Every structure is written in C-alpha cells, then in structure tokens.
Amino acid sequence: MKHLAVAANLLLATPVAAQSGDPITAENAVDVVEMIRIADAIDAAVDAKAWPLARSFFTETIEVDFTSLTGGEPATIPADALIDGWSGNLTAEKTSFHLRGNHRVVFDGAGEATLYSHGYAWNRMERGAAEENGGDPLWEVWGTYEHGFIRTEDGWQVDAMSFFATAQRGNDFVRDTPGS
C-alpha cells in the first residue's frame, strides 16, 4: 500500500501535459523517437561504462537535479563533471542496469522539449554482501526522469536531467560506495 500512495502522489504532482505528452504527429515523430533513443542510449552507455559515448549526448553544461537521491541542491554543472561522477561511482567492480519506459515528450518551443519517463536502476557490488558492509550486494531505485532537450547543429542534445526517486530498497553501502 505504501508504494501505491507514493505512485498516487507522484501522479498528482505531475503536470497534466507531462502525464500524456504532446500528440505524436507526422511532423514531430522523428524528433520524439530521437529523444527517446537518446535517453535510452544514455542508460545503455552508463551500464556499458562507455563514458565518451554517454558524454556525447549532453551539451557542454547541464542542469541536474538528483537531490532525491543525494540531497543538496539542483545545480548547473559541466557535463564532463556529471560523467566523471558517474564513472567514479560505477567502476568495474559495480554493475548497473537502467531501464526506462512510459516515455512522453512535451515540446516547449521551437527546438526545445522535455522527455518524461519512468525509470528503474539496479546496482550490484559483491563487496556489499560482506556482513560489515550491510550483507546485501544489491541496491535498486524507482522514480521518474525529466530530460530537457535542445536542438543543436549536431541534433538533439540533453541540457537538463532530473531524477525523482519514488521508492528504493537494498543496501545503501552499494549505492554510496564507489567501486574500486
């Protein structure tokens, strides 16, 4: 029941346009599919630890909000810093799996859009299974993503990314400890 309440509160707080997205038309279908491809490709690149590929999907600076996971404040940072943070935490010792669905795109103007999606992430690190480290090698989280897109001369790129956790379980040691 607790998870149902979290999901219901999330839907109530989500703007109506984000719940359904803009209609897909002949004029915007290629753009919608490209934004979904990019968001999914970021996940695949992160899980493969293909850091240059992951970096290629972002503008030079990016607005980020991962405060539901890490605390702090939303910030505008260099995209290189975002990738450095991810690569520093998700080293060879730590396996990750990201999955997203329920993609909805809202066009915010000429050359700007927001992609809304539901997301799931799983992290595994064998060191977490040690009793002194919590006894569980897994940590997982569910939530919603928002990716801000702008059209550049190179095509659509992400200039903003937020994750809003709705539920998580597992070992915080796995989440918080960089792999070696």
Rank of each mutant, 00 (worst) to 15 (best):
K2I: 14
A110F: 04
S96D: 05
T76R: 13
I24M: 12
Y120K: 00
A29E: 14
T76I: 15
D159E: 07
S68C: 11
G170N: 04
W122R: 07
M161S: 12
G134P: 05
I36A: 03
F66C: 05
A5N: 10
T14F: 14
G72E: 08
W51V: 03
E140I: 00
V6M: 15
M161K: 09
D172L: 14
F149E: 10
K49Q: 15
D31N: 10
I62V: 15
H98I: 02
T114S: 11
A29G: 08
S68V: 11
A110E: 11
M161Q: 09
H98L: 00
A130H: 07
V105A: 00
T152A: 08
D84S: 11
Y145T: 06
R169D: 10
N89R: 10
E93T: 05
D80I: 09
V16L: 13
H118N: 11
E60C: 04
A92K: 08
I42H: 10
G109L: 01
R127I: 00
M161L: 14
L82M: 14
G170W: 07
G71I: 07
A26S: 14
E63P: 00
A75M: 11
F107C: 01
W142D: 09
D47L: 03
A44E: 13
V174P: 09
F107M: 03
T144R: 07
R100I: 09
G101Q: 01
L138G: 05
A5E: 13
V158P: 09
F149H: 12
G143K: 00
V106P: 06
T70W: 14
M161I: 10
L90A: 06
E112Q: 05
